[in-house]
Write a protein that binds this DNA or RNA. Structure first.
Length: 199
DNA sequence: CACAGGATCGTT
DNA sequence: ACGATCCTGTGT
């Protein structure tokens, strides 16, 4: 019984991206046998955010970002990693939240088989690891998260507290965008990035 | 059609 | 600190 809690409705996503990002902490991502509790995220803005894929305008890759919130935006990075984002806001805002780290709730066997190693805390910190654990790839870009079946966002235990800081891996962005504290992590869990801790 | 680079990860 | 590895966007 991997499913628990309730499916989160489309209206959840229709708010400013940083607000949705904070609210995503503690909620569950479910796909097949695997359920993950979200512990770390980053918010990415529309065209004005030079760290965001939306900075170059609409392209075939980022097309789901420009659609109404509540769907996945998945892209392939560095030739080997899939990155899972949840699109937020009304159509045209092109905002999304990158899922950076999770804590396993169900499907440990499937996770370890996919990752080829024990699912210790540090092993699910990082967006590439999250997508691999869930079994998400490019086929899921554009997928609606508020419809039953397939990849779903569901309710879960809220975090004890929220830590925030600057986003990771965006050295190419403008200084004001690099400084933006749009990385959020749940307090009180080991299932977050170890190398660049928040707090 | 060719090319440079990337919201990373695991090992050295 | 570096290499893996390929999709994507841009330019010719």
């Amino acid at each position: 019984m991997p499913r628990a809690g309730t499916l989160i409705p489309a209206s959840f996503y229709l708010r400013p991206v940083a607000e949705v990002a904070r609210d995503l902490l503690g909620r569950h991502l479910a796909l097949g046998p695997v359920v993950l509790r979200i512990t770390e995220v980053e918010a990415y803005g529309g065209p004005a955010d030079t760290a965001s894929h939306a900075r170059a305008g609409r392209t075939p890759r980022n097309a789901p970002m420009w659609e109404p919130g509540g769907r996945a935006y998945v892209y392939f990075c560095y030739g080997m990693h899939h990155m899972l984002n949840l699109v937020t806001g009304p159509a045209g805002r092109a905002e999304a939240v990158l899922i950076r780290a999770c804590e396993p709730v169900a499907g440990l066997e499937a996770i370890e088989a996919r990752r080829g190693m024990p699912a210790r805390p540090a092993q699910l910190a990082g967006p590439g690891k999250v997508a691999q654990a869930l079994g998400v790839d490019l086929a899921y870009t554009g997928h609606l998260l508020y419809e039953p079946g397939g990849l779903e966002l569901r309710t879960g235990a809220p975090p004890e507290g929220i830590l925030c800081g600057p986003r990771v891996g965006i050295d190419f962005a403008a200084p004001e965008d690099r400084a933006r504290p749009w990385r959020f992590a749940a307090a009180g869990t080991a299932w977050v990035s170890q190398r660049k801790p928040l707090g």
